[in-house]
Design a binder for these strands. Structure first.
Lengths: 100, 100
DNA sequence: TAGGGATATAGGAAAATCCCTATATGGATC
DNA sequence: GATCCATATAGGGATTTTCCTATATCCCTA
């Protein structure tokens, strides 16, 4: 586990909020026409709107979270849905507990 | 616990290395004339040298670690010694496990 | 295959971080 | 009190991060 890379991903209020929202997507986002909020994840546009940033900025934040292992992207039709990777996050927590 | 502040403190290779060295100061630093490495902590100059940065830069890194709760400063004579705050770090680990 | 919607990439401006030198401060000692 | 050593603070340059607009790409649908 790369502790610095993990920490950098969490060193942003916006990224931490995304992670928090994705714990319970149905409580934080409206239903989607395609893609189940819980099963498939939340689409980039919804995250960008709730975050109050442009779509490219949201994409960039999600990319950083994905590269650190916190979330996974799933492409369905023309949308990309992001959801938490709970198994990876559990591993990250263990890694932090071990290395800190 | 402020997750973003904690993450920012860890979002630097140099600060993570300091934290790691301070787990076992005697294994990483030479004996000090004043101040016990384990009891009192490690003086700023030794940390700056090992880190390969100037003294003010080391001071800045240590300040960031201290403000996030990872280390504590102890002033003895004209030296400032830094040591890990294990109780606080345990709390940080719990906080991360809870909030992530 | 033409059109359109969603996402990704490119490029650049603004802000934050990192690290330096110079200097101020704090405290011990002569 | 004068001096010296360790640390803290000030100020500034270089790099990185953040976020935007414009545009390219991907993929569905007509």
């Amino acid at each position: 586990m790369d502790l610095v890379k993990t920490a950098r991903a969490l060193a942003s209020d916006k990224r931490v909020r995304i992670l928090s929202w994705l714990k319970d997507p149905a409580a934080h986002f409206p239903p989607q026409a395609d893609g189940d909020l819980v099963e498939d994840g939340v689409c980039v546009v919804l995250i960008a709107e709730k975050l109050g940033v442009s779509q490219p900025t949201a994409t960039e934040h999600l990319k950083i979270l994905a590269e650190a292992g916190f979330v996974r992207a799933r492409r369905l039709k023309q949308w990309t849905f992001y959801r938490r990777d709970e198994a990876a996050i559990a591993g990250i927590k263990q890694g932090i507990a071990r290395e800190l």
